[in-house]
């Protein structure tokens, strides 16, 4: 199956939650030296739940789309819920078949998010 589905490309061209937060509660960076993807994620909490989350950086289609969808999903979820997310969840969220190398692109935003919890 082609991984460049319309929905993926739509998130790539118009990523949700792209940008920065002013004085976030927490922020963290991750990178994949192999392909040069870099993502910084910023987050604000309200009690135990995500109030606002944004990301920016350089990425391929897959990592950008994944960051866009993941940040949408994360809003108003609790830290515990988010800690449980794994690569299986990401694959399901993206709804595409990913080869071994591209999985790394897809889970990079999740790594960034986990750093903030």
């Amino acid at each position: 199956m082609n991984i460049y589905q319309d929905i993926i490309l739509d998130h790539y061209h118009h990523p949700h939650n792209q940008g920065r937060l002013i004085k976030p509660d927490k922020s963290g960076k991750v990178s994949n030296p192999l392909c040069g993807d870099k993502i910084e994620m910023m987050i604000d909490f309200e009690k135990n739940k995500v109030k606002e989350v944004k990301f920016h950086g350089e990425g391929c289609v897959i990592s950008t789309a994944s960051a866009s969808m993941l940040t949408d999903f994360a809003k108003s979820k609790s830290k515990e819920e988010l800690k449980k997310l794994n690569s299986k969840f990401i694959i399901k969220m993206l709804g595409i078949d990913l080869g071994m190398t591209r999985i790394k692109c897809a889970v990079l935003p999740l790594e960034a998010l986990h750093k903030l919890l």
């Binding site: 991984i3 460049y4 392909c35 391929c60 289609v61 897959i62 190398t101 591209r102």
Partner: peptide, 12 residues
């Protein structure tokens, strides 16, 4: 365009 995306679309 990201090199990974280029290579992937060429691979297809």
């Amino acid at each position: 365009f990201h090199p990974h995306d280029i290579a992937q679309i060429l691979a297809d």
